[in-house]
Design a protein around this nucleic acid. Structure first.
Lengths: 254, 254
DNA sequence: CGGCCAGTTGAGTTCCTTCAACACTAGTGG
DNA sequence: CCACTAGTGTTGAAGGAACTCAACTGGCCG
């Protein structure tokens, strides 16, 4: 892959726009205007190498960041080294919009793969704008916040009341949906660029058991994996088995 | 207990005010004014019996609710009946401020004990007020939202990477702190008005194992339980053992 | 080639669950 | 007044889910 290290490329707003479009259900005209105003912000993109702190314990957050490409994670490290990943950070996510809502001293956000991010200071003020006037971007930012909370609820339910088998399938469905909403993947297949250790720390399982569980899903013909490419062979069955509620349903497009 | 069913008592804003005072760190004058403006809202309190839906699947949310007394829970029920409690709802909490941030079709909020709540429509508009003017109440509401997210992070870490023993101790510490922040308890002791089944569904454990784990904590002299009264005998040791990070620390009082 | 990392497999152990039974309390109706 | 029931807490025993330890494979890169 050709590195785009220092160069300032055009702002990677497309994943964010796609997500807003999918979740906030604006009329076409409004969406068009919103996309233009996003482009007009002139956000500067930069690339971040893997395993780098983006926010939290490893460095003060500063401006909020818009993710354009790559995978990151919010994680918490316990005193004895155990790690729990609270959730993945994917294209279209905005981290640290509200300084009051980021528990900096607790959870750090790190890059897992190489990422493209943009300092998104303008989103902070616009995103928190007066809601009574119902500025579309403000509404959109609140919808994104709702999606983030829904993801945490998913994560709690997975960890608390699902078996290893269900957890893996549920997580795959969630990743597929999030990547599709952001427009970086489509169909029943997606690239999973993280190790099984990362998956294990997300799912609250050991590496070994994560591995065995994935194999079981393959043997059962529910998923198919080639390299980093994951294909959901029977997405409907998988959703039924794992009690998966799509984000689109949870947020209700109301 | 004498029921206060239909009567409209004075608004139970004290727990909310206490929490804001503790978490948002306003100067005394500002805090005084904020407390007065809260009182001036004229919120009407009503009581809710146990095991009643407050918001979510069992009934449209409508206005946001300010909790004055009693315990509730946000919960998710899986298709086969398994239940996961996402978090407790305690005095001083406000639920459903932002309609976009409440995944209604997913998680329901129910009362566990009798509760006193107030329809808090005014908090919605005031809480989402223009932040550039930094209205104290708006800042406070965002601090509360931050606290809620921090609690979910706690919950994820407990469920994903802690043993049963650690989970119980960690939860007790969290409940103690939340009740103290709201001013409804103080010291190292608090009333726990819920069954072990509720605790089990919160901790992602079976009832039996929850029971045995609590007993182990008692035998180890870390907690002491009499009826519904829980006393943290060795809060410091417990915090060390369970890697407990107080909310006050997480939110940084910045 | 040699070393490192991710993935895989086997074996034994621990943690937690399930099933079942029993004690205790409170509320209920005969 | 007392049997009856239901809900909660508690305990024992057995099984299963997930973990740990360990070894081995294959790819990738210096």
């Amino acid at each position: 892959m050709i590195a785009a290290r220092e160069e300032t490329v055009s702002a990677p707003i497309e994943p964010l726009a796609r997500r807003i479009e999918a979740l906030a259900a604006f009329p076409p005209g409004v969406m068009e205007a919103l996309r233009e105003s996003l482009a007009g912000l002139g956000l500067r993109a930069r690339s971040v190498p893997p395993r780098t702190g983006l926010a939290g314990a490893e460095g003060p957050a500063g401006a909020p960041l818009l993710v354009g490409a790559g995978w990151g994670a919010r994680q918490r490290i316990l005193a004895d080294g155990r790690r729990q990943i609270l959730g993945f950070v994917l294209p279209g996510d905005v981290i640290g919009v509200d300084p009051h809502r980021a528990p900096l001293r607790y959870a750090a956000t790190v890059s897992l793969t190489a990422m493209v991010v943009a300092d998104a200071e303008p989103l902070r003020t616009m995103g928190l704008a007066l809601p009574s006037r119902d500025a579309p971007l403000a509404r959109a930012m609140r919808a994104l916040a709702a999606a983030e909370e829904a993801l945490l609820s998913h994560q709690v339910t997975r960890l608390g009341r699902q078996t290893a088998y269900e957890r893996v399938g549920h997580l795959f469905l969630e990743l597929r949906e999030r990547l599709c909403l952001a427009g970086v993947e489509q169909g029943d297949s997606f690239t999973l660029p993280v190790t099984q250790e990362i998956l294990a720390d997300t799912l609250g399982l050991s590496i070994v058991h994560t591995n065995r569980t994935i194999q079981q899903l393959r043997r059962d013909g529910l998923v198919s994996i080639t390299g980093t490419q994951v294909t959901l062979v029977e997405p409907k069955s998988l959703a039924g088995l794992t009690d998966y509620v799509p984000l689109a349903t949870m947020l209700g497009r109301s």
